[in-house]
Amino acid sequence: MATFKSAAELTEANRNALRGLLVALADTKLFLGFHYGEWTFGTPALEASIAACSMSQDEFGHLRLLHACLTTQFNMSPQDLLERRDFATFANVPVLDQPLHSWSDFVAVNLLTDGAMTVLLSALQRSAFEPVANFVDKMVAEEKHHVRNAQGWFRSLATANEQTQTALADSCRRVLTATLEWLGPDEQEIANILAGAGILNTPWSQVQQKFLDWVGPLAEEHRLGIGLEKQNGHWLSRRALDFSAWNPMTRRCVATQPDEKLLYHLRGSKNAIFKLGEA
């Protein structure tokens, strides 16, 4: 398999497809980092606060790597990616558009949304696009702690009282639907192009199936209905999403966008006058 040292060596179709996927990954990590950071306070245990804060740092570290790649390879600066950008173009998983109101929402996002990103990052390991292959192993290694945290809390809440189990199941169903919306249809041009060039190491349908086959047994182990069912040895969503209006650039079925107040905080707008090097 041929490898590519820079975006200049890619075809235009490969370049556009990879840029779209990296922007969507970066946007999702931006909001994961924000929400994890918000949950530095108010967790059910002090150690959980430390873990949330640590995961936030990891996500912002990954965001820096992705932004650096987008800057050097695709000429998109962090300012373009975060500040000089229409809200409607953000391609994060839609459930991150709003604050995570409850601890069960946090656990569901940690397990399902962050988990889906980890499966996708695994599909980028040994990528034919060398600038991505160079940093993705570090991300996957750090994400293993996020997965452990999510599984540990999922098991704790799933074996607690009925009220807690119900809250967890409700959060998981909502987050799963949003995460599957972001993952998109089985067949999508962007993913086919990337898998064909060896930039993704596996077809997109297998990325999705690997994610569902990891989550399904965990929910089944605790008899928690999160909207999945097993068919012919594999796990599938009970709810068929309508992808007819799915936008591959925003990875959304409908034109939703992040909450304005949330982006105001993320952009540091309140402290805009203190930004160095800006008029």
Binding site: A45, H145, S156
Partner: peptide
């Protein structure tokens, strides 16, 4: 030391608290 409800979370908390 860390407080945790199970081994899985104890591993995460140890790693994040003493990194």
């Amino acid at each position: 030391s860390v407080n945790a409800p199970n081994d899985e979370l104890a591993k995460v908390y140890a790693w994040t608290a003493y990194d």
